[in-house]
């Protein structure tokens, strides 16, 4: 499970892309892609490879005016699923 001190980043070859045909955000990786909803896109937009997961969840909590605990739980599950699929890595 991703922790507050972990620093997530998108590995080389993975990028956010707005797909105009589907009218939705997609996360592209070589030969693979997943579609994102607005919340998923908002989480990934905060990931810069420098800020920790704890800092990111605080920023999202302020942006959405929602409890940081709920955001941390949902975001950790989401990012964990992306990490399992190799769409995301954590800084060593």
């Amino acid at each position: 499970m991703i922790g507050p001190d972990d620093i997530p980043y998108l590995p080389r070859g993975v990028r956010l892309h707005f797909d105009r045909v589907r009218d939705t955000w997609v996360l592209l990786a070589p030969e693979r892609a997943i579609t994102l909803d607005q919340v998923g896109q908002a989480i990934l937009a905060e990931i810069d490879g420098a800020r920790s997961f704890g800092v990111i969840t605080q920023a999202l909590a302020a942006k959405y005016n929602a409890p940081a605990e709920e955001i941390a739980k949902d975001s950790a599950g989401f990012l964990g699923a992306l990490k399992d699929r190799r769409f995301l890595e954590l800084q060593p």
Partner: peptide
């Protein structure tokens, strides 16, 4: 926009 649990869908 309200917070909701994010969903992902794989493009086959």
């Amino acid at each position: 926009m309200a917070w909701s649990k994010p969903q992902i869908r794989e493009i086959e």
